[in-house]
């Protein structure tokens, strides 16, 4: 009996790999390609995430499908722009060197493409908090005429016409038509498991100067850039302009005092995700710190904590920059599971 099992087992595996239906083979390939598949996880000491994966459980096939959709320029109207065009892994999924990004036909956006990681903790998405639910976030760049300029009516037939996608959607979600919900759930499985929690700060491997920077950070910055996510997800004015050209949060809240207020961004991976601020006006962290020390402009939107600027001398600014650089998560930036998949 046991001997028969010994012969049968490899045979079953071989049959599964080569003779079984395409969906099963796809699931095996996905499990191998994403191994070990990133799963929703809460590092010790972190708050509970806001996005609930229990209604969208991450599977190898769902994650792999999401990764493909994220990197596929066919999601844009003319096939030129993918999500990854403006969200590059080496920049922590921000757009390196671009104050604002260019979409369809070279049209420019109005705000700096934010980095993407730990998105499951964001109560709202976007600089102004326009999007309530991570699942719905992809609809914004997809439909924006200066980004991907596409509609769901336009993109779904492209996916349905592709045998590879048909197989992948079935592997991820079972039989059934490719619809907007399945597309959005797959994208969420990918972007929602872009986990970054393995910087030198997290491993407690800071140098003396970085430690000094951390102490200054906790004194001057941490009330808004709250650890461990390095943001409290509030909307604040940080004194960029006396009269903000961008209405910011007020577009969403309808409140006049929110004009020029934007979401406090996380500072994880900040050293690799330049340029900075909602309009990408600063190219370096040194410029950012000079702004907080001596460039604050007063306005109704200005956060009271920043009135008059932060008192930071040049050495302290250097120590802070050193600390901020320790927030880079190299393993995240190099993780092959998040990279553009092979065709």
């Amino acid at each position: 009996m046991r001997r028969r099992a010994v012969i049968l087992l490899p045979l079953i595996v071989v049959v599964l790999l080569f003779a079984a239906n395409g969906v099963l083979r796809q699931r095996l390939a996905d499990a191998v390609e994403s191994f070990p598949t990133p799963r929703p996880a809460v590092p010790p000491g972190w708050p509970a995430p806001r996005y609930d994966f229990s209604a969208n459980p991450v599977t190898a096939s769902g994650f792999e499908l999401g990764r493909r959709l994220f990197h596929d320029p066919r999601l844009s109207r003319d096939g030129s722009i993918s999500c990854a065009s403006c969200h590059q892994q080496f920049a922590a999924f921000a757009h390196l060197d671009h104050r604002v990004s260019h979409g369809l036909n070279g049209a420019n956006g109005t705000r700096n493409a934010p980095p993407l990681f730990n998105l499951a903790w964001q109560p709202e998405l976007m600089w102004d908090g326009a999007i309530h639910n991570l699942e719905l976030q992809p609809l914004a760049p997809l439909g924006n005429p200066v980004e991907m300029g596409e509609t769901l009516e336009g993109v779904l037939p492209k996916l349905r016409a592709d045998a590879g996608y048909r197989r992948r959607f079935e592997a991820a979600f079972g039989p059934g038509e490719i619809d907007s919900r399945r597309m959005l759930l797959a994208l969420t499985q990918f972007v929602g498991t872009l986990h970054s929690a393995d910087s030198r700060y997290d491993r407690d491997e800071l140098s003396a100067q970085e430690r000094e920077g951390l102490a200054l950070f906790r004194q001057h910055c941490a009330s808004c850039h709250r650890e461990p996510l390095f943001t409290d997800y509030s909307y604040r004015g940080n004194g960029l302009d006396a009269d903000s050209a961008d209405l910011g949060r007020s577009v969403i809240s309808g409140k006049a005092e929110d004009r020029g207020r934007f979401k406090v961004p996380s500072l994880r991976n900040v050293a690799v995700s330049a340029p900075y601020m909602h309009d990408g006006r600063f190219d370096t962290l040194a410029q950012v710190l000079r702004h907080y020390a001596s460039g604050i402009q007063d306005s109704a939107a200005l956060d009271p904590a920043l009135r008059g600027g932060l008192s930071l001398n040049p050495e302290q600014q250097q120590a802070l920059v050193a600390f901020l650089e320790s927030l880079t998560d190299e393993a995240f930036l190099q993780d092959d599971r998040y990279a553009e998949p092979l065709p």
Partner: peptide, 17 residues
């Protein structure tokens, strides 16, 4: 989050921005 049927955002009755 993402919904189906009459509430499918593909129906064109969902503000994407």
């Amino acid at each position: 989050g993402a919904q189906t049927g009459a509430l499918d955002p593909a129906r064109g009755m969902f503000w994407t921005w």
